[in-house]
Amino acid sequence: MKIIVGVSLVPDSTTKVKIGATNKAIDEAGVTYIINPYDEFAVEEAVQLKEKNGGEVIAVSFGTDKAKDAIKKAFQMGCDKGVLIKSADANFDTFTVAKNLADYIKTENPDLVLFGKQSIDFDGLMIPPMVGELLGIPSINVVVKLDINGKEVTAEREIEGGKEVVTASLPAVIGTQKGINNPRYPNLKSIMASKSKPIEEKAPTYTGNKSETIDMKLPPAKGKGKVFEGAASAGELVKALREEAKVI
């Protein structure tokens, strides 16, 4: 089975966002970058499928040189090959990413494409369905359980207040959600082994962008709230919620 996993590099979730000098992106100084947390589920699922069925797993990222760190993490978790579709700068939108990934995936003709359900920087939930559409193959996103039986895929997809049981056939795109598996911690041996794996670089096939960020700002600051003491003030709080805040 040939599996491609898309991985991206994102600021660590503890990052305190500061707006950069251009007012269009964050100030990168002091920011720690990690593999997108949802991509670890995708990588884990791919590696488990390979361990079960044989085959190979290719990790691909679209981005600047920095994105290699996400691929290296994927290597540590057991991916066999790595590909960076190298962007000259960080000025690309989701469509550009989806288009480049789809163009590359087409050349490899995999059985399965795995992504995280969402990246924690732009919170899109866009790449998995977009890549599925661009390739003309099924996509199922926010998947918490995946069963593959020959060419048949049955997936449980999380929705508001429940789950959908979705069927499709391979090749397909799956976006993984927390709960699908427990991503492994790389051991020393796999970390050492990953060091010698080369990352193949490819040129983008599209750089057009369909959208542009014209301004980035922090959310409006909140004034100091009203704080009461002890259970005896419950009545006062309820009164304030009703009469001042008017939320009940």
């Binding site: 305190k16 966002v17 959208s211 700002k217 959310p219």
Partner: peptide, 20 residues
């Protein structure tokens, strides 16, 4: 249309415009 959307889990907001 100019659209505003939260990014970085709501830690900041961006205004976006679109090519067509």
């Amino acid at each position: 249309i100019i659209a505003t959307k939260p990014v970085y889990a709501g830690k900041s907001l961006v205004d976006m415009k679109f090519n067509d």
